[in-house]
Design a binder for these strands. Structure first.
Length: 204
DNA sequence: AGCGGGATTTTCT
DNA sequence: GAAAATCCCGCTT
């Protein structure tokens, strides 16, 4: 039971929701998420990975699932920041996004690549024997490696079995900005970001 | 090293 | 009915 102190201010008692830093536009949050950590519990084991490549998608952007408004599929994108949006694509693959921005604004950041921080044996098994950068250097690859599927759509990233832990903002000199991958609308928008010189980045 | 096709389901027109 | 925020394999240079 937490008792209320007479003297302590409210801000020292209540935990700060760090996900409020994931503000719109989605491009802002996409840069903010570089270098941040996912902690995934799977098969009773813990795997930590570092985000090294992201893409921004928001409702002002023709390439975004949220562009044409809320639907059954995109509903989670219009919720508050800090939840997972998982979609299925090309008949085979899942892709993972972090919902960003205020509730009511449809925005999310696609996680395109992560760098494993230990326990790579588990990832290798889930990836059918692949190893090294092939474990997680693509949006569907990292979902397979981390066991992310539609069951985790709408998951709160403050909770097990998949937590997002924010790291300090990466310096702008360490971030490369480019066009997004695999889209046909809004091709020239520079909303893809990755950690400079990181070998896990999917497309250089 | 680069190109082409197949896998296979959700979503919207 | 077609396209899709992809990946992998096999064939050709």
């Amino acid at each position: 039971m937490i008792s209320k102190s007479k003297n302590a201010s409210l801000s020292t008692i209540l935990p700060v929701d760090s996900f409020k830093e994931l503000t719109a536009p989605a491009s802002n949050a996409a840069k903010r998420l570089l270098d941040c950590i996912f902690e995934r519990e799977i098969d009773g084991e813990l795997v930590r990975v570092r985000i090294v490549e992201t893409e921004a998608y928001d409702q002002t952007d023709a390439a975004s699932h949220s562009y044409k408004g809320r639907s059954q599929r995109t509903d989670i994108m219009f919720g508050p920041a800090g939840y997972l949006y998982v979609y299925f694509t090309y008949g085979m693959h899942y892709c993972a996004n972090v919902v960003v921005g205020e509730a009511g604004y449809g925005a999310a950041v696609l996680i395109r690549a992560v760098e494993p921080l230990g326990n790579e044996g588990l990832l290798e098994r889930r990836r059918g024997g692949k190893s090294g950068i092939e474990l997680t250097n693509g949006p569907a690859k990292l979902c397979q490696a981390l066991g992310i599927n539609k069951q985790l759509n709408g998951h709160n990233l403050r909770e097990a079995p998949l937590r997002l832990v924010l790291a300090p903002q990466l310096s702008s000199e360490a971030i490369v900005t480019t066009r997004r991958v695999g889209i046909s609308q809004a091709k020239d928008v520079l909303w893809r970001f990755y950690v400079k010189d990181n070998s896990f980045v999917s497309v250089k």
